[in-house]
Design a protein around this nucleic acid. Sequence first.
DNA 1: GCTTGACCTTGACATCATGGGAAGGTGCAC
DNA 2: GTGCACCTTCCCATGATGTCAAGGTCAAGC
Lengths: 139, 139
Amino acid sequence: MNIGEAASASGVTAKMIRHYESIGLIAEAGRTGSGYRTYGPKDLATLSFIRRARDLGFSIAQIRDLLALWQDRDRASADVKRIAAGHIKELTAKMRQLQEMVMTLQHLSSHCQGNDRPDCPILERLASGTGDDGGACCE
Amino acid sequence: MNIGEAASASGVTAKMIRHYESIGLIAEAGRTGSGYRTYGPKDLATLSFIRRARDLGFSIAQIRDLLALWQDRDRASADVKRIAAGHIKELTAKMRQLQEMVMTLQHLSSHCQGNDRPDCPILERLASGTGDDGGACCE
DNA sequence: GCTTGACCTTGACATCATGGGAAGGTGCAC
DNA sequence: GTGCACCTTCCCATGATGTCAAGGTCAAGC
């Protein structure tokens, strides 16, 4: 199986497969006589694993650990769960940050007339940091 | 005012101030005879503006537009509001993605015993993509 | 055999915002 | 006149991915 086929079968681009190989996330692929990389079912499974993990937002470092656990028959599921828990925590923290930004922006935006006049609470807030701070006020 | 003072007063690192200058986000700072950058109150205000905008998650490109509007006395608040609305949309989309990841992970995690045994629905899901898909099942 | 087109190879560079560090010049206080 | 904190420029790194370029390979058709 060529890298192109492995890419479309796993959903990981050929570029990224080479990249993952270069950083040691996956083992070096076998080669044909002319230098083409070859992939078997096992490699495909690994690539698909990586892709699903990326889809869940795991970092390469985390995936490295997950792969090691996956390939360790004597793993403890607690180790996997711990990685997942840490990741959930990170994601939740990011979400909360975004949430705060959105709330502030929505609040400012709701007080911006959005017309031809120049006065705008959004700019005022960016300019001075004072003024409306997003707290409850009128709803 | 030196770059260091401007940095601590505005909350933008000296490193980033130089960077913003190099990419043309801010005007070139004045210089002393020996080449040190100097900053006045106006520059400080701009830097603080940038920092607050970054805190709200605006990209450099968006900040470039916001700065232009801020410095345009004939601006229409509608233009500002449009930028903010676009940004809110982006942030909301990201939040939703994270939300989905978190929900999937929490679901998988809740079914992982987290003990010394190797069986783990998280790894199974990453390995096969099949099995528990996060749908309602027991609660 | 030869051409064509799709695929592969490596390598370099871009993104986005930021941090780190090296090597050398400047300012000020003791 | 020395020491230290600060400044300067320049280069490299992050993380995950994309793009592009120059060249090699394979298989099919003529």
